[in-house]
Design a protein around this nucleic acid. Structure first.
Lengths: 248, 248
DNA sequence: CGTTGCGTTGAATAAGGTCAAATAGAGTGG
DNA sequence: CCACTCTATTTGACCTTATTCAACGCAACG
C-alpha cells in the first residue's frame, strides 16, 4: 500500500525485445524474419511503465515517438476549445498510439492510462529509417495506420446512424472481439472506463449508458454489476449492433 | 451537350507529371527535389477521367492503388449491413483517397464522383518501393495518412458532441477552409452534394439540414439558394462551430 | 406541360438529454 | 471495526431536440 514498495532498478535487461514479445502477432513485427526482428529491437530501445491516471502524451507535446502497448488499457481524448472532453478511443495491448501526431509533428490529443500499463517507445525518425530497410515492416506499418482509418470510419457510422442501444451493443461487441483476439475471454470482462467515458465515446450521456446497461440486463443480453461485465447474449447483441464488426 | 463531342485520344502525353502539377504543394510531392519528383512521375503513370456518378472504386474491390484527385469532387461512403448508406467524407482536389484499403488489401468503402473528375492513379506496391528510396516522400505520405486520422477524430468529436447547428456550421467552415487553401473563394461556392448527403455525413436528416440552412440565412450567416452558397457571416459561423478548424 | 427529383416547411412524435434524488461501494480516519 | 465521506452509478420525471410524416414549391427535362 505504501509508496516505495521496491527499489526501481530499471535494469537495461528490461529491453523491449520484440523478438521475445508475446505480441509479435498483433503488433508491428507481424511476419518479420528473425534478422529483421532483431533490427527492430535496436529501434525500440526503451519501455516505460505508466501508472493508472498518468499521461503518455498530452495535446501539444512535440511528436517524438509512437507507443506500442505491451500491457494495460488507455483512453485517448481531446478537449474541444470550449473545454469539453471528447474520447477518441480506447486502446489495449498490442495496439499502437500516436499516429494522429505525425501530421502536425505535435500530439493533437491526450493519452491517459486507465490502469497500470507498460508501453514500448518507438522513436519515430529512427523507425522511419528502419522502414526503408525492411519493406515488410513498412507495409505492416501502413496496414496499421490504414486499420485505424477504417476503424474511425466505422466509428463515424456508429456515431452518425445508430440508436443508443445499437451504439452500446456495437461498443461491447467491439470490446469482446478485441479481447478475444488477445486470447482473453470475450464474454467476461472488467471495464476500465466509467459510464461517463463510455458515453462520451459513443456520443451519449452517462445516464443513457446506464439505462441501456440496465435494459440489456433485463433483456438477458448482459450481466453487469458496476464495472464487471458478462455478455450472456452475444448473438443477440451482435444482431443489435448490426454485426458491424470492425475488430480494429 | 451531345455525347462524343471530341474523340478521346488518351494521349500518352496525358501523363500525370507530378513535376508539372499545380497541386505539388498540396499533394504527395510537398518539398521534393527535382530528381525525386521525376522518380515519382515514373511511379504515377496514369490518370483517369471519371464522370459524375461513376465510381473510382467500390467496397470489396481489391486494393491496387491510391488515387490523388487532380480535379473534381468525390464522396466516399459505406453501406451498413442493413443497407443504410453512411457518407465517410467528401474529397477535393489535391487529396488522396484509398488509405482505408491498405489494411485489408480490399476497399472497405465506395468512392463516387459528384462531378466530372480526374484522378492520378498511384499503384501502391510500386509506390511503397519508391518510398524506400525517397525518405522525404515517405514522411510526407505518413503525414497525409496521419492527417486523415486526425481529421476523422475531429469528425468524431463533431458527431458525438455537437448540435445540428454546430455540425452544419463546422461543415461549412471546413469546406470554406479547404477551398481557401486551394486558392478558391472561401465564401462563394457551389455545393456538389445534396442535402441528404450532407445530413448523412453529419449524422442529421435532410430536413434538419434544410431547416438549419434556412435558419442560418435568417440569421444572416449565409445566403443559400439551392446548391449555391455564399457565406456572409464567417466569424459568427466560426464561433458557432467552435472554431474547430481541422483543415483536413 | 406533365413528370421527376430535390428542397422547403409545418405538425406530431419519439429519443435522448437534463435535472434531481437515492443508492452503493471504496477508501479514510478515528 | 465503525462512522463518515466521496464518487460512481442507478433511476425517475420532465423537457429539448431532432426525427418522422406529410404536403407543397420549384427547377430541369423530356
Amino acid at each position: 500500500m505504501t509508496a516505495k514498495q521496491e527499489i526501481r532498478l530499471d535494469i537495461p535487461a528490461l529491453k523491449a525485445a520484440c523478438s521475445a514479445c508475446s505480441l509479435r502477432e498483433l503488433c508491428l513485427p507481424v511476419g518479420l524474419e528473425n534478422e529483421d526482428l532483431s533490427r527492430l529491437d535496436t529501434a525500440i530501445d526503451r519501455r516505460r511503465q505508466i501508472k493508472a491516471g498518468q499521461h503518455v502524451y498530452r495535446l501539444g507535446d512535440s511528436f517524438e515517438a509512437l507507443y506500442a502497448i505491451r500491457s494495460g488499457f488507455f483512453k485517448s481524448y481531446e478537449l474541444s476549445n470550449d473545454g469539453h472532453e471528447q474520447v477518441n478511443g480506447f486502446h489495449m495491448t498490442g495496439e499502437i498510439m500516436g499516429f494522429e501526431a505525425i501530421s502536425a509533428d505535435r500530439h493533437t490529443c491526450n493519452a491517459i492510462a486507465l490502469e497500470d500499463c507498460e508501453v514500448c517507445i518507438i522513436p519515430f525518425p529512427r523507425f522511419e529509417e528502419l522502414l526503408r530497410d525492411i519493406p515488410s515492416l513498412m507495409h505492416q506499418f501502413h496496414r496499421l495506420m490504414s486499420r485505424e482509418i477504417a476503424a474511425d470510419h466505422g466509428m463515424m457510422m456508429l456515431l452518425g446512424n445508430m440508436s443508443a442501444g445499437q451504439k452500446l451493443a456495437a461498443f461491447l461487441i467491439n470490446l469482446s472481439d478485441r479481447l478475444g483476439a488477445r486470447g482473453l475471454s470475450p464474454t467476461v470482462m472488467r471495464l476500465s472506463m466509467s459510464r461517463e467515458e463510455i458515453g462520451n465515446y459513443l456520443g451519449l450521456k452517462l445516464e443513457t449508458v446506464s439505462r441501456m446497461f440496465s435494459k440489456f440486463q433485463e433483456d438477458g443480453l448482459v450481466q453487469v454489476e458496476r464495472r464487471n461485465l458478462t455478455i450472456t447474449g452475444l448473438p443477440a447483441l451482435q444482431r443489435l449492433a448490426g454485426c458491424a464488426g470492425t475488430t480494429r
